[in-house]
């Protein structure tokens, strides 16, 4: 913990205030919305990881979750809908020294942006992707998403969702991600540890975080904010290294959380440098040796 001077100021400084654009707080997220907790955990992990924050960039797409980029006191980009990952890919390729964090919603990353996700994972682009999965399109009023559970109610599925949702960790693993984990916003300490680990790891890391959207999802599914948290508490089964194909979200059976995948394979930039920029590879090697 850092030092906090409470005596000198009327308002005490929150330990994360140095990473927040405090002039924009309170943020726009609704009372009981979990995005703020996930964001807070991400900031704590950024601190904890010890990575150079001057060389760290946060990229978000569009949606309530996508607003995070506007609150972090780092270089950050609020991109167009679904395009956080390709934008982040461009940043990384133009300046491979950067640490890239993509923080966005389930709709942004897996509906409109789904194709970008699978290709960045396939290429093993070196970035950390944090997906706030609130099971719907929160910002636009609670439409069905690619993650909405079967039979759940939304504005566009008033009698229940007839679709099968994605199993996000399976998709990440099958596409080539080298780090895959899932937590809920209630499992804040595990979540922070996981984000810290992912930030320090090279390659494509993916963390799914279940988080309540009481206003648009909870209200239509008879779940008050605290009900949702209690559900996370009751239904969570922590099972590290679980088989990714068994990770469908089913609130009846229980939700499996944990770190599922942690492996190493060359990143896109490593392959690219070897083939097209051998001189840079040389520079990097000599840089490492010096």
């Amino acid at each position: 913990m850092q030092e906090i001077s409470v005596t000198s100021k009327k308002q005490p400084r929150h330990p994360l205030d140095d990473l927040i654009r405090t002039d924009r707080i309170p943020h726009i997220w609704c009372p009981g919305c979990g995005i703020g907790t996930v964001f807070s955990s991400c900031l704590a992990a950024l601190k904890e990881s010890g990575i150079d924050l001057k060389k760290t960039v946060m990229v978000s797409g569009i949606g309530c979750s996508g607003r995070a980029a506007g609150y972090v006191k780092l270089d950050s980009f609020h991109t167009t809908h679904g395009r956080a990952i390709p934008f982040a890919t461009g940043l990384k390729l133009a300046n491979p020294e950067l640490n890239i964090v993509v923080f966005s919603g389930d709709g942004d990353l897996f509906a409109i942006g789904g194709n970008h996700f699978i290709h960045a994972a396939r290429r093993n682009m070196d970035m950390t992707v944090i997906c706030v999965n609130n099971l719907n399109y929160g910002m636009t009023g609670g439409q069905v998403a690619a993650t909405t559970p079967y039979m759940a109610k939304s504005t566009t599925t008033p009698a229940g969702n007839p679709e099968t949702p994605f199993n996000l960790p399976l998709m990440a693993y099958a596409s080539g991600a080298t780090y895959v984990a899932r937590w809920t916003m209630l499992h804040t300490r595990d979540l922070t540890d996981s984000i810290t680990e992912a930030l320090c790891k090279k390659g494509f890391s993916f963390i799914e975080v279940l988080s309540p959207c009481p206003v648009n999802y909870g209200r239509r599914n008879k779940q008050k904010p605290l009900d949702m948290l209690k559900l996370y508490q009751e239904k969570a089964i922590i099972k590290n290294h679980a088989d990714p194909s068994k990770l469908d979200i089913d609130f009846e059976k229980g939700i499996i959380l944990g770190k599922f995948i942690d492996l190493d394979r060359p990143t896109f930039i490593e392959h690219y440098d070897k083939i097209y920029r051998p001189s840079r590879l040389q520079e990097n090697v000599s840089g490492l040796n010096s």
Binding site: H14, I20, G32
Partner: peptide
């Protein structure tokens, strides 16, 4: 620190 890390609003924290 649990109140601090669960709060979505950066509105509460504890110090030793």
């Amino acid at each position: 620190h649990y109140c601090e890390i669960i709060c979505p609003e950066f509105a509460i924290f504890s110090v030793e």
